[in-house]
Nucleic acid binder design. Structure first.
Lengths: 202, 202
DNA sequence: GGGATCGGGATACAGTCGTACCACAGGAAT
DNA sequence: ATTCCTGTGGTACGACTGTATCCCGATCCC
């Protein structure tokens, strides 16, 4: 059989299998054997590329964080710089919402990891995804909007952004739970932005 | 040995033990044996009062829903009727945030159940907690505030309330994850209400 | 007083889990 | 050509799981 093997490629394959299980059957359905079966390999292979289950799980959350981060970064980057702040906010917040099946699956897995981390501080989600960075970035964007007069001068950019991010997270949760669909969630976000930026000059 | 036993009391005791485990060590740490140990009884007793594990778990989420509901209802009720809408909203949303150790524990358990329900549709959280009822109630409150002129006439009470509830849920999540403390979260909620109700006539 | 029933102690069973270990095929290095 | 190392199949072990079964002390009904 194949001699020299690309370990990274192998690991990505297994990690993808792990996340597929996590997003469809939950984190408690993730066992080394299940991952092996999902990836179409033997248990030994999973053991070989991830010595521990802990290592395996960490690989899962790392990949997840990378995916979510990439999704936001891609959409923001695809629009270039110099966009109106209102557009930046809408695009970034919209990128967080689970708009297609892939992002829905990732957000499901992310939620599972987050919940697990809440009651297992050791393996917490921590600053992996670094929402703080996002928070700081958007706060800067909004602060510039204040200076430009796009937005009432008496707002607090920091608290506005914290609120917008919390709002979006809350909407994600309700979309995942199917209490609301994505379009409704987007409508709520746009409504908030409309009220923040005044009458829409759309 | 005690002969006739209060089954409901027994079940409440066991359910409390279950929730204690769920909120500290997570839902995956909940086994019949662990619940028995936490409650100081034998495995057989847990089996006796909850034939299934499924039954046990359902008792847990039912109790949780009752607690969260009671918390909101108590605080709102303690203030009587005829309060200004702004106060009602602040009190109700504040009652959702985990302000003390008990409510924090309950929200942790709730989050665990919610996450589990997302990937196990069969035993989903469903309409148990009925946030829809809350949503409708608050929408009515806000609609009356519009009529009374306490609030800009061009707002959409329904979307405002959906946004406020999503915001609060998002804040709960970040408070549980210790990215923010409760006071910060309360500040964000009050800030939003200030912007909604205009200059605070505090 | 004698069943019958309730409450619960003890233990067993089959399954799944993470992990460890042994064996071995086959290219790499010498 | 021999040796060594890498990748993988198979399997075993001990811990834990939910569930089932057997048993018995105590109280209630008659």
């Amino acid at each position: 059989m194949p001699r020299r093997v690309d370990h990274d490629e192998r690991r990505r394959h297994l990690t993808a299998a792990l996340l597929r299980i996590a997003s469809t059957r939950g984190l408690q359905a993730v066992s080394m054997r299940e991952v092996a079966a999902e990836a179409g390999v033997s248990l030994r292979v999973v053991q070989y590329y991830f010595t521990d289950k802990r290592t395996l799980m960490e690989s899962g959350i790392a990949e997840l964080a990378a995916r979510l981060d990439r999704r936001v970064r891609e959409r923001a980057g695809a629009l270039g710089t110099g966009l109106p702040p209102r557009t930046v906010l809408e695009v970034v917040l919209g990128a967080i919402l689970p708009t297609d099946e892939d992002s829905r699956a990732d957000q499901l897995a992310w939620t599972a990891y987050y919940a697990a981390g809440l009651t297992a501080p050791a393996e917490a989600v921590d600053g992996r995804y670094a929402p703080d960075a996002l928070e700081r970035w958007l706060t800067g964007v909004l602060a510039r909007a204040v200076e430009a007069g796009d937005v009432p001068a008496d707002i607090d950019p920091r608290i506005e952004v914290v609120g917008l991010l919390a709002l979006t997270n809350g909407l994600v949760s309700s979309v995942l739970g199917r209490q609301r669909d994505v379009d409704d969630a987007l409508r709520v976000v746009r409504y908030r932005l409309d009220r923040l930026f005044g009458p829409t000059a759309d």
